[in-house]
């Protein structure tokens, strides 16, 4: 019982840290791109960037909280570690796929709208 509770607590902490850090980094690095896309309307661009960050947080946090209850039962410490790493790893891989598909969409957008 204690092991699974500590799994949940560690999972939630790690998820918040990972998603928060990634989102903030992407928000910072994506700023010039959104500004370029909005062609000079800087207020609008920054507002859109903020909305994108909020949406990203909502979706990712929602997903990772939803899968919390499907974490497998763990009884021992090694089990805890392997399950934790596997699920955090899966989440990070999903984030990577989302990130790359976002960049792909952005580059396609730029090609067909000739910004």
């Amino acid at each position: 019982m204690n092991v699974i509770l500590s799994l949940y607590v560690l999972y939630l902490l790690l998820v918040v840290v990972v998603i928060g850090w990634t989102g903030w980094q992407l928000y910072q690095a994506g700023k010039p791109f959104v500004r370029m896309m909005m062609a000079g309307e800087q207020h609008l661009a920054d507002w859109i960037n903020g909305m994108l960050l909020t949406g990203y947080y909502l979706v990712c946090m929602g997903y990772s909280f939803m899968v919390l209850s499907s974490l497998p039962d763990v009884l021992t410490l090694p089990d805890l570690m392997s399950v934790l790493c596997r699920w955090i790893g899966r989440l990070v891989l999903i984030l990577a796929v989302l990130h790359y598909s976002n960049m792909l969409i952005f580059s396609l957008w730029k090609r067909y709208h000739s910004v």
Binding site: M81, R86, G89, V92
Partner: peptide, 11 residues
């Protein structure tokens, strides 16, 4: 993201 995720996933 992709490499850390993979490293954790295969642990």
């Amino acid at each position: 993201l992709i490499n850390m995720g993979f490293a954790l996933y295969i642990l």
